[in-house]
Design a protein around this nucleic acid. Structure first.
Lengths: 331, 331
DNA sequence: GTGAAAGCGCTAACAT
DNA sequence: ATGTTAGCGCTTTCAC
């Protein structure tokens, strides 16, 4: 890789001038610029983003960090796509860190990200009380959270009205006549799991139904937890007649259990999941689900971040996007 | 962020010594080391990976690039997870670039990756003739390809026997009595699409069936192409009685079309897809599919890459992993 | 066993 | 309009 020095030599100018044509581009003779451009072309020169980043924290070095809990979850894949969309348009590269719901891994990744001198970070932290992340925020790193925020810390945040989404799902189930509605939740430490629980309870309450705590189970947000918790629920003396699942992966897991037991949906048991998938209509049966606009969440987060990078002072904003219930045939 | 200089000052030594305890760790007085370690702790010091990278190409700076065609495709997500697994274990961070089957985007990403001074790259290039990537390889960047290689260029490559996978699928269909078997392929420029076509043809031939070119359609490897090409096929004067789909996304798209037309699977039409998904048993109907060990592909590629980084000379190796046909109920 | 100093590729004063 | 130079944080000779 040719360096700026070589370009300068070839064009018979100093590195400063080369840097000028590459950046501000003001104040440089047309003829000189042409010569430099020619040298750049000839040497196939590409500026080193690394040197640039090392040199100045002040100037944007075009690197973003993305920290997500589980790349297996299609929801986060979509969020990622949204982010990537805007990153690409602004010439940012992305360091992607998937911590797989593992806090130790998250910690290491946060360190790496910091050590890489990223310009900004989009994160869905494992916990609201993540000290390390909080510190990075207070140290001035531009951060925007998605899906979950940080307690007692002002950060940009984009998410969805989780309580409302759950309410929609459970209320729908009740209106269809289901009486024993279970909730298979994700990790209890994740705020969205708890907001969804609130929506679940509220729907029960508003419809004059009593809350039965044996019907709600928290897991680890992964596929396998859906499989197992659903199995537990079904083997209850008085099993549920409907289940509301806390995310994509759990839904798929629960479906697996239900099918393996030869149960009919919705004849024997109904199901509505949090998180829609475009192929949900090809599931058996077509799945009724609460849809979050995942790609848009990612896009908004990306825009917010890029904006914050250039304006560190702006007050943190919190965007709550709409959810909707997509009714298909599983209820 | 504290710098090495500050640590040195605090410990009353020179940066060289600090660097020593951080790296080789040879030849440094125990008492001095203790003092330095203490200073590091006190300042919460973390070495800058950026400075390290800038300083020496010789020493590993722990950054890997991953270039994939489509993060929406669960196959690549799994490959990515495999890579990430081994990267994490070796303290490498990953710059993830998803070019979405767009060659222009791929080009830009390749430039960025180079400019970031990555230690190595895992790529599934858009084309076998990717000049830019070939150049990076010949310039000495450690590269391992997954899913698709590079023509006339020696690179490590890990993939699957695509021809065999397709053969398995189509032969299975024929043995079940299907007569008009269509193939909805991905992009024709992707080698795997063509190898799968070869397997398709071979199975036909081995079973004494004639090849009908109206039954094979190439698309862009995305979901929508599955939807549309399946629709075209179904509206043929003499529609197929079975379809073999070229990847995950296409399968889901085809399923969507079949369901929307109210057709029964496998009564009206059978389907077997390339690429299995763990939730394929929850599809309607449970899908028969050719399984590639995606996570393992990623893991192997990661190992190969890390190995190559430390030994640039080793002869390129090509790993072909096994595929298997998972029979469920869609045929 | 430890320090001084050069230099990786770049930007940003400051000079001219 | 262009050049000189310091310095970002680190590794690595070469001295001592």
């Amino acid at each position: 890789m040719a360096s700026m020095n070589e370009v300068a030599k070839k064009a018979g100018v100093s590195v400063a001038t080369v840097s000028r044509v590459l950046n501000n581009s003001t104040n440089v003779n047309d003829e000189t610029r042409a010569r430099i451009l020619k040298a750049i072309k000839a040497l196939n020169y590409q500026p080193s983003r690394v040197a640039k980043r090392l040199r100045s924290k002040s100037v944007s070095s075009n690197l973003l960090g993305v920290l997500i809990p589980d790349i297996e979850n299609p929801f986060y894949v979509d969020v990622l796509r949204g982010i990537e969309d805007v990153a690409y348009n602004h010439n940012y590269a992305i360091i992607m860190c998937n911590f797989g719901q593992d806090e130790k891994k998250e910690k290491l990744y946060l360190e790496i990200l910091q050590s890489e001198s990223i310009d900004g970070l989009i994160a869905a932290p494992a916990s609201e009380d993540d000290l390390q992340l909080k510190k990075m925020v207070s140290d001035g790193l531009p951060v925007v959270c998605v899906d979950r925020g940080l307690s007692n810390t002002e950060v940009d945040l984009v998410l969805v009205n989780n309580e409302r989404g759950a309410y929609l799902a459970v209320d729908h189930l009740i209106k269809r006549g289901y009486k024993r509605i279970a909730y298979i939740a994700g990790m209890q430490s994740i705020p969205s799991s708890r907001y969804r629980e609130m929506g679940y309870k509220k729907a029960l309450e508003d419809n004059g139904m009593t809350f039965d705590e044996t019907l709600v189970r928290f897991g680890n947000s992964k596929h396998q937890s859906g499989v197992e918790l659903c199995r537990e629920l079904l083997s209850l003396p008085e099993p549920p007649d409907a289940v509301f699942t806390g995310n994509n992966l759990i839904t798929l897991g629960a479906l697996e259990t239900i099918h393996s037991q030869g149960l009919k949906i919705p004849g024997d048991i109904a199901i509505v999941g949090f998180d829609d998938m475009y192929w949900a209509s090809s599931l058996n049966p077509p799945l009724t689900a609460v849809r979050q606009p995942a790609i848009e969440i990612g896009r908004r987060a990306g825009e917010l971040l890029i904006q914050r990078i250039s304006d560190t002072k702006r007050a943190p904003i919190q965007m709550m996007l709409n959810v909707e219930l997509i009714e298909r045939s599983s209820t």
